[in-house]
Amino acid sequence: MPDVIAADGTVRNDNWVLVARPAEGESLAIPADQPALIPADLWLAGHEHYAGRDDIGVWFDSHDEPELLAGKVDELPLIAVNFPRFVDGRGYSIARLLRERFGYAGELRAVGDVLLDQLQFMKRCGFDSYVLRADKDISKAARCLNFFSQGYQAASDTDQPLFRRRAS
């Protein structure tokens, strides 16, 4: 199991399993003994079966729309957003929409091609846990989460830009 980094820089063992989308004609194989992250649209399709379970979360691919779970996000203990390539920034928008428009207050995790230099920007968009790409040094994560002392613009972590914060 990979390690997961929390927004405060601590590293913990990740017990969640990301379940891949099944191939055409196959059924979803959820492990019985571990918490699992399943594709968001499949969770929604089986909502009556998964409702109330704290061992089932969802994951979004970068092309998925968070509106899919409007009104249901509070039923989920964890939502992960996949970054298929580090140059694909749609996951940042998904995170902000989940936090700001849909009011998701649970754990929001970045997975996939997650690099150290992205961590602080992901944190500002609302992510609070991260699974780094396997070839990255997790011991550097805490420093990368707080590389800049202040952000200029408003984001999920602060609702006012720096010039307004300095004026007050």
Rank of each mutant, 00 (worst) to 15 (best):
D74V: 03
L119I: 15
Y130L: 01
P84N: 00
R109Q: 09
A32N: 11
D61M: 00
V4M: 12
L132S: 00
G112N: 10
I138R: 06
Y104H: 14
A80G: 07
F60M: 09
D137W: 09
D88H: 09
R96E: 13
A36Q: 04
P77C: 05
F148K: 13
A134P: 14
W16I: 02
V11I: 14
D137N: 13
K140H: 11
V81D: 02
F86Q: 00
D41M: 09
I79W: 03
G91L: 00
E100S: 02
F147L: 11
V4F: 03
R101I: 05
A36R: 01
A29Q: 15
R101D: 10
S27K: 11
R143K: 15
E75M: 02
R165F: 05
Q160R: 13
E100T: 01
V87Y: 07
D14R: 05
A45G: 03
R109N: 05
V11E: 08
L68V: 08
R166Y: 10
A134I: 12
H63V: 14
V81H: 01
V11Q: 07
D61V: 10
A105R: 15
E67I: 06
L97A: 11
Q160Y: 04
D117K: 12
G103R: 06
L69G: 01
N82G: 11
F121V: 10
P39I: 02
M1V: 12
I94H: 00
G112F: 01
D157T: 15
L44A: 15
V73D: 05
V87R: 15
F121N: 04
D14Y: 02
I38E: 00
C144P: 01
D61S: 15
R99C: 02
S62A: 14
M1C: 11
I94R: 04
S156E: 10
D61L: 04
E26A: 08
G52R: 05
A80V: 08
S27V: 15
V114D: 00
D157Q: 13
D41W: 04
K136S: 10
P66V: 09
I38S: 01
A80D: 04
V11L: 02
P2T: 10
V58G: 01
S93E: 10
D135F: 07
